[in-house]
Every structure is written in structure tokens, then in C-alpha cells.
Amino acid sequence: MIINGVSVGPYQLGWRLQELEEKISISGFVEEELDKHYTITTNTLKFWVEKEQGEITQITVFGEYEGKFLGKIGVGNRLSDLNDLDIKWIKEDYVYKLPDYPGICFELEDIDDWDELLAPIEFISIYCS
């Protein structure tokens, strides 16, 4: 289950790096150091850990991740599905945000014959809003 601005499955925004590493150690992960963040990536999840505070500020799902937002929208769905559910969205740069649900955004797959309503959702991110 994906909860905007809060959690993805059992993983919570605001967790410290050590707590996250304890929870995902079984499945393995790749850690990368960036300027202001560490990223921790598994086969379906990416965590952004802010260096200064040492807390998770963003969680992204992708690939075969099966959890859903509102029990209905997941990786592979389309913006047309959001329209069918009467969920409002806005485009900001290359991400799609939901004004009625702060703390969540979508990125679409770059497909041939681009149509933003039909391109599959490739990444879903929750973040501290």
C-alpha cells in the first residue's frame, strides 16, 4: 500500500538510515552517495536519505512493485486511469502531481508514439510535503 507523504508498505518517511538498513538487509540493496543524499536501491524500491538529518525524505517504487495508491493506482497504470477515477493531476516539469493528495508524484515511461494519457506510470514517489 502506498500512502502519500507517509509510507510505502512497511517503509516510512522519516526513518533513519540505520533503521532502513535493518529492514531491507534480507533482500539486499545498493547504496550510492550523492551531494545531499544517500540513495538505497532494491529491485523495486529506491530510498532517498538526506545526509544532514539522516532521514528518509523520499521513497520511489518501480519495476514489479505491486502495491497500489488508494488501492487502485500502481506501476503500469496510466493517467487515463486517474481520469477514470476522477483524480485530478497536474504536470510539473517531467512529474505528475495530485493536488488533492500532497506528497505523491508519478513519472511516466518514455514510450514511442508519446501520449501522456496512455504512457504507463513507471515510477511512483512519495515524499515529505
Rank of each mutant, 00 (worst) to 15 (best):
1 M>W: 10
1 M>L: 11
1 M>H: 14
2 I>K: 07
4 N>Q: 14
5 G>K: 06
6 V>M: 11
7 S>C: 12
7 S>L: 05
9 G>H: 09
9 G>I: 07
11 Y>D: 01
11 Y>S: 06
12 Q>M: 15
12 Q>H: 15
13 L>V: 07
14 G>F: 10
14 G>D: 07
14 G>Q: 08
15 W>D: 10
15 W>I: 03
17 L>S: 09
17 L>C: 07
19 E>M: 04
19 E>P: 01
19 E>N: 05
22 E>A: 14
22 E>C: 08
24 I>C: 03
24 I>W: 01
25 S>W: 05
25 S>Y: 08
25 S>L: 08
26 I>A: 07
27 S>T: 10
28 G>Y: 01
28 G>D: 02
29 F>A: 03
31 E>R: 13
31 E>A: 04
32 E>N: 13
32 E>P: 00
33 E>N: 10
35 D>E: 14
35 D>C: 04
36 K>M: 11
37 H>I: 09
39 T>R: 03
40 I>H: 02
40 I>Y: 01
41 T>P: 00
42 T>S: 02
43 N>H: 13
46 K>E: 07
47 F>T: 03
49 V>P: 02
50 E>D: 14
51 K>Q: 05
52 E>V: 13
53 Q>Y: 14
53 Q>C: 10
53 Q>E: 13
55 E>F: 11
55 E>Q: 14
58 Q>L: 11
58 Q>D: 09
58 Q>K: 15
62 F>P: 02
63 G>L: 10
65 Y>F: 15
67 G>C: 04
67 G>L: 06
68 K>N: 07
69 F>D: 03
70 L>N: 05
70 L>Y: 06
71 G>Q: 11
71 G>P: 12
72 K>M: 11
74 G>A: 05
75 V>D: 06
75 V>G: 03
77 N>W: 05
78 R>K: 15
78 R>I: 03
80 S>K: 15
80 S>F: 12
80 S>M: 12
81 D>A: 07
81 D>E: 11
82 L>D: 03
82 L>Y: 04
82 L>T: 00
84 D>C: 00
84 D>Y: 14
86 D>G: 04
86 D>K: 12
87 I>A: 03
88 K>R: 12
89 W>H: 09
89 W>N: 00
90 I>Q: 08
90 I>G: 02
91 K>R: 15
91 K>Y: 11
93 D>N: 15
93 D>R: 14
93 D>T: 12
94 Y>M: 05
95 V>I: 12
96 Y>P: 00
96 Y>C: 00
97 K>V: 12
97 K>C: 10
98 L>G: 02
98 L>F: 09
99 P>W: 05
100 D>A: 15
100 D>L: 13
100 D>E: 15
102 P>H: 06
103 G>A: 05
104 I>C: 06
104 I>R: 01
104 I>F: 09
104 I>N: 08
105 C>D: 04
105 C>T: 01
106 F>M: 10
107 E>L: 12
109 E>Y: 11
110 D>E: 13
110 D>I: 10
110 D>N: 12
113 D>H: 14
113 D>S: 12
114 W>S: 04
114 W>N: 00
114 W>Y: 15
115 D>M: 05
115 D>V: 03
116 E>T: 05
116 E>G: 01
118 L>T: 13
118 L>E: 15
120 P>H: 04
121 I>Q: 02
122 E>S: 14
122 E>V: 02
122 E>D: 14
123 F>D: 10
127 Y>K: 02
127 Y>V: 02
128 C>P: 00
128 C>N: 14
128 C>W: 11
